[in-house]
Nucleic acid binder design. Structure first.
Length: 422
RNA sequence: CGGGGUGUGGUGUAAUGGCAGCAUAAGCGCUUUGGGAGCGUUUGGCCCGAGUUCGAAUCUCGGCACCCCGACCA
């Protein structure tokens, strides 16, 4: 895409009402815009990143046999009364013209459970795995930290339905692994740890995926040996030791909860009287699991980790473009290169602006954070070269133009291999 | 919801009772062109309402918005 066609611009200074790094950088780079506290618009660059995250999640979910659905956001009061959650404080409540009460969905157990019940009668119909990527609305008392805690946000929520505890347990483990693959592909694998948290009334623990960063709002006790975390909320109950190895060498870290999975067991199947017949003809309650990832929060966490004083440094799988092409006053040659790169299927952001100086283009490219930058100028063309640089690294390589396709193939190989979309 | 803070051109800031100024962005002209260019020029602003005062961006009251700390966060 030509940068002259991009409708957003970068800004030099972050608005003073944003203190978090993720919001400051994403707004300055033109990825997002704040409408009101905890509510953000995704602009072209930000939306591309969001879609990348979405596709990674979708691939990994489909890999563990999930099927995607899309559930409503307008929920009638009655379904929430069945589970006694209508009074939950996070629910935004509306009334229509007839006075009927509607809640905005902040989670979807109340929708998915009766839905799946319509199709599942026998053990032969189980298990079922369905997920969606949907807006969630939560009446947070205090929205904060940019994308990390919003009132409206996009979430992937998966629900699984099983005939036995063992089957639930088996699938639960599978999802755990898929989650780690997702966080790894988003570039935060190294900083993200499985963490035990309160399990509510129906299981010992829930599991969170906590990403270590200074600006996280959670606090976890991380066992150096097992790499298992314990959320502060239950550390007292665990007697300040690792539940796995019983070791007491725990390091306290600030972190962001980027994912959360838990076993619902029969909490919702009971509420909706969702039973099936097993292979002996006995009626039993279906057992459920539930698994969430907040996409915006995940993006926020990625930015909190991957940036420097100049701006964003995007992990290659999340970048809105494969490379950023900068023309420093050699329009004809750069234009041709742009066309050639596109023919190779490489996604290019082409800074073709003629009224901007070299310095401006460099600074803005650093802010936007596309992993690879190519510069074409008088200087490089004199050597028959372009200049290639990886964001966040000082090294600059000069590459002969005729060798570029092969060169980029090497550099972008891993990227292209993973770019299948659904 | 408790506590604290802040609202001034698009963005960032100054003026603390007496002519609303600066930077940046934007428009125009000329010059420039490898790390947010230079000169000239133009456009654009005191969150809303009430009060005090000869006079309010500034003081008082109310409202609204946003940020931070805490509580909350299946």
């Amino acid at each position: 895409m030509k940068q002259t066609q991009l409708f957003t611009k970068t800004i030099k200074e972050a608005p003073k009402d944003e203190k978090s790094i993720n919001a400051q950088l994403l707004i300055r780079a033109g990825f997002i815009d704040k409408l009101t506290a905890g509510v953000y618009s995704y602009l072209p660059l930000g939306l591309r990143v969001l879609k990348k995250i979405e596709n990674i999640i979708r691939e990994e979910m489909n890999n563990i046999s999930c099927q995607e659905v899309f559930l409503p956001v307008l929920h009638p009061k009655e379904i929430w009364q069945k589970t006694e959650r209508w009074q939950y404080p996070e629910m935004f409540k509306l009334k229509n013209r007839q006075g009927k009460e509607i809640g905005l969905g902040w989670t979807h157990e109340e929708v998915i459970t009766p839905l799946v019940k319509k199709f599942v009668k026998s053990y032969k119909d189980l298990p079922v795995f369905v997920y969606q990527i949907q807006d969630k609305f939560r009446d947070e008392l205090r929205a904060k930290s940019g994308l990390l805690r919003g009132r409206e946000f996009i979430m992937k929520d998966l629900y699984s339905f099983h005939q036995s505890d063992t089957d639930l347990e088996r699938y639960y483990t599978k999802v755990k692994k898929a989650y780690f693959r997702i966080f790894k592909r988003c570039g935060i694998g190294r900083q993200t740890f499985l963490t035990l948290a309160s399990g509510g009334a129906f299981s010992g623990y829930s599991h969170e995926f906590q990403t270590i960063t200074e600006f996280g709002e959670d606090e976890i006790y991380l066992c150096q040996k097992c790499k298992l975390g314990v959320n502060r909320e239950i550390i007292q109950k665990e007697k300040y030791q690792c539940p796995k190895c019983k070791g007491k060498k725990l390091v306290i870290k600030k972190s962001i909860e980027v994912g959360n999975i838990f076993k619902l067991k029969d909490r919702f199947s009971k509420a909706f009287d969702f039973k099936f017949r097993d292979n002996k003809g006995m009626e039993k309650f279906v057992l459920m699991g539930c698994y969430g990832i907040g996409l915006g929060r995940l993006l926020g966490a990625v930015i909190e980790i991957h940036h420097d004083e100049k701006g964003i440094i995007l992990p290659k799988e999340l970048s809105p473009f494969d490379l950023h092409l900068l023309d420093l006053g050699r329009k004809k040659e750069t234009e041709k290169l742009y066309q050639d790169l596109q023919k190779q299927g490489i996604k290019v952001l082409y800074d073709n602006r003629e009224d901007k100086t070299a310095g401006t283009k460099f600074v803005e490219a650093d802010l936007i954070g596309i992993p690879w930058r190519i510069v074409v100028s008088e200087r490089t063309l004199a050597k028959g070269c372009i200049e290639l640089k990886k964001r966040g690294r000082p090294k600059i390589e000069f590459v002969k133009i005729k060798h570029l396709p092969q060169f980029l193939n090497e550099k972008l190989k891993t990227l292209n291999a993973k770019q299948k979309c659904f």
